[in-house]
Amino acid sequence: MDRSISIKMLPFASLTMLFFAKGMDKEIRPELKAVYKCLPVCYLIYYAISNLKDSKKSKDYSKKIATGLVLSVIGDACIVWPKLFIPGALAYILAHGAYASSFGWKPLFLKTGIVLYSVVLTTVSAMVTQLSTVLILAIIIYALLLTTMLWRAFARYIDSPNLWKLSALSGALLFLTSDIIFGIHLSYFQIPHAEFVIMAIYYGAQLCIALSCGEIVSLKKEA
């Protein structure tokens, strides 16, 4: 990756550390926590938009990634308040749909998709048995969109591997990891420092997906 990207990501790193330093205080007001929580991904939105170039392919990809990041920010803010968990989950569902769309649908790699859906849905089904019907439905729909996003990231990378596509795939895998940890924490047993672990992985996932916008910049420089 271009060394300049490391410099561009310094504000993201600073905002992430600010959230961990201030936003996780147990005494903090929910409104302020929402602000701290959303700031790192807001910066990634700026990064994705800054990668909009002249070509249609570049614009379409970066716009969809930016859309997914905006929807993620809405989800981040909503779930600060437990009563807004369902709207937050809906925002994340739409975010994963935007990411999946950005990764494209060709080539299909249907067998890969079937395997991923089988594994993820089996895992989710085992985790949600003790939850309410509404929550179970929301989580299953969320898992379907997350798996679709992961499937398309896999297919895109397998078709023509490069570092930027690997970044997108890594982001999808990190999303899955953070959600599995959240599911275990919610349904089975309390994980020590769960919020810190989940949010660290979550920010890593969003960073990797946002960085995949750099593919178009890299190709343009090589040309």
Rank of each mutant, 00 (worst) to 15 (best):
S62R: 05
A100W: 03
G183W: 07
G97V: 04
R3P: 15
N51V: 01
K165V: 03
Y188W: 14
I141F: 14
G113M: 00
G75E: 01
L207N: 08
S178W: 00
I201V: 12
V120N: 11
M149L: 08
A205E: 03
M9A: 03
Y202Q: 05
S118C: 12
E215D: 09
S218E: 14
L144V: 14
Y188I: 14
C208V: 01
T177Y: 06
E195I: 10
A48R: 02
Y36P: 04
T67A: 15
A126R: 09
A34N: 03
A91V: 03
W164T: 04
Q206Y: 13
G68V: 05
P40N: 09
A66E: 08
S62E: 05
L207D: 03
A172S: 11
V120Y: 07
G113H: 00
A95Y: 08
I139E: 07
E27T: 15
A205K: 06
E222I: 10
A194I: 07
L173N: 14
P107I: 01
F109W: 06
P40F: 12
A66P: 05
K59F: 14
K83V: 00
F19W: 13
K63S: 15
T112P: 06
C213P: 05
A138N: 07
R152P: 07
S212R: 04
I198H: 07
L173G: 10
S218F: 13
W105Y: 11
T123W: 11
I140E: 10
V80H: 00
T133V: 11
V70L: 15
S14M: 15
P30L: 09
Q190A: 10
L145Q: 08
Y203K: 10
S178E: 00
L169R: 04
S101Y: 11
L15I: 08
A100H: 02
F20D: 03
K63Q: 14
R3H: 14
G214N: 14
W151N: 08
G97P: 07
F109G: 00
S167M: 14
Y117G: 06
G104P: 05
G183R: 06
S125M: 13
Y203P: 04
L71Q: 01
C42S: 14
F20P: 04
P161G: 09
Q206D: 12
L44K: 07
C213M: 05
A143V: 03
